[in-house]
Amino acid sequence: MDLALLSALNRHRNAREAVALVTDLESGAARLVTPEGLAGDPAAEALVEAFRTGKSAKVITGERPEFIDVHVPPVQLIVIGAVHISQALAEMARLVELDCTLIDPREAFATPERFPNVRLIAEWPDVALPPLKPDRFTAFVALTHDPKIDDPALTIALRAGCFYIGALGSRKTHARRLERLAAAGFADADLARIHAPIGLDIGAVSPAEIAVSILAEIIGTHRQRRRG
């Protein structure tokens, strides 16, 4: 493998872009393929499957054995609001290996004492979110109830195509939120992607139970998309 190919692979990974390294197992010849650039590749069919499942695999292309080493970004979880639910959610996210970041501009909420071992950013979402590169491998959760904080964050999450978007709030709160986002130019199809009321309906009461219901909904959305 050429160093240039390895460097390109690392660049894609750092940019949270899906990429596959395809290596001929006999000659060692290798090439990089992106989901956008796979049309015309001899292993296109297998590559589609690899990008969908995120699983690397040995395939036979023509008569040649090749290895598809597929790299899809790890799923990240971005939580807006350093509230009680987030305390439980951040801990549980670590157990299921979601790369979790909490954002809350209110410094009284976003303290390391309340959130040990979690990446915590005490900034407004429009400042904190873009460097995290939210994308289709990102789950996004808005939990502050405060339109000043949640709305700009939801706007960024919707535009970024996050695979899961959830927002805390009663049906009434959510109806008003939808009116504001529609007025800001979002179509019904976009707004329908917001899970609200947030979480699976398991009758959750405590903050930790609500965190379970949110996490279950995120996992369900993620796994079913890959299964489907």
């Binding site: 493998m1 160093l3 460097s7 690392n10 040995k58």
Partner: peptide
């Protein structure tokens, strides 16, 4: 992590070390 391993392969090679990469294929 996978990122550290692949980044290390690149760093070592750039530093002039000879490098091989092993991958579990099956």
């Amino acid at each position: 992590t996978e990122s550290e391993i692949l980044a290390t392969a690149e760093t070592w090679r750039l530093a002039g070390r000879s490098v091989a990469l092993a991958t579990v294929t099956e």
